[in-house]
């Protein structure tokens, strides 16, 4: 049967192939290899178990814990730095605010100074203007008085001449009185 199997494999039909395989059986159910497999499985498992539990797993666990610690530390440091940054920002803002207040003060001061100068200048100018106005008023008054006198003189002269021209005899005092009355009237 074995020799025919090897020689007639080429012409083996499906059924025969199955039959042949049945002769071989499933390697999984070949009980003669079981002790061998079980023995080597146990050896392998023991080796893996001891390597893992004695060496690898504690080491990996320690590394992971270490990393976790490092991360926690870093996070704490970052938190601290963040607080510092917040404080720095607050100081900056405070400085900004105080500078602003200072600037406001300086501006107000300058404004007040300018106002004072301005007020003084305005007062001075007002005084000057008032003085000038008074002066001009006085001169106007003088001019007006001068003019009135001149008008009286001219009127008196004119009236005396008119009276003389009309053939009268001009009494200077009478003419003057008449002129004054007329001017007043």
């Amino acid at each position: 049967m074995t020799t025919t199997n090897t020689t007639t494999e080429a012409v083996a039909g499906a059924a025969e192939a199955g039959h042949e395989a049945a002769k071989a059986g499933m390697p999984q159910l070949d009980f003669s290899t079981f002790p061998n497999q079980i023995f080597w499985l146990l050896v392998t498992l023991l080796v893996i178990y001891f390597v893992l539990s004695r060496v690898a797993l504690p080491r990996i666990g320690a590394t992971l814990a270490e990393r976790k610690g490092a991360i926690t530390n870093d996070l704490a440091a970052a938190e601290e730095l963040k607080l510092k940054a917040v404080a720095a920002e607050k100081a900056y803002n405070d400085a900004l605010v105080s500078a602003r207040v200072e600037a406001g003060k300086i501006v107000a001061q300058a404004k007040a100074d300018i106002q004072k100068d301005l007020d003084a200048a305005i007062a001075r100018a007002d005084a000057e203007i008032a003085a000038k106005a008074a002066e001009s008023e006085k001169s106007i008054g003088e001019i007006r008085a001068g003019a009135l006198e001149a008008v009286t003189a001219v009127a008196t002269d004119t009236a005396g001449e008119l009276v003389a021209a009309l053939g009268g005899k001009a009494d200077a005092a009478a003419v003057q009185a008449a002129v004054t009355a007329a001017l007043k009237g």
């Binding site: 003669s32 290899t33 002790p35 061998n36 497999q37 079980i38 023995f39 080597w40 499985l41």
Partner: peptide
């Protein structure tokens, strides 16, 4: 295949 034979297993 004895129990100790080194096999492909």
């Amino acid at each position: 295949i004895e129990w100790y034979t080194p096999t492909n297993v």
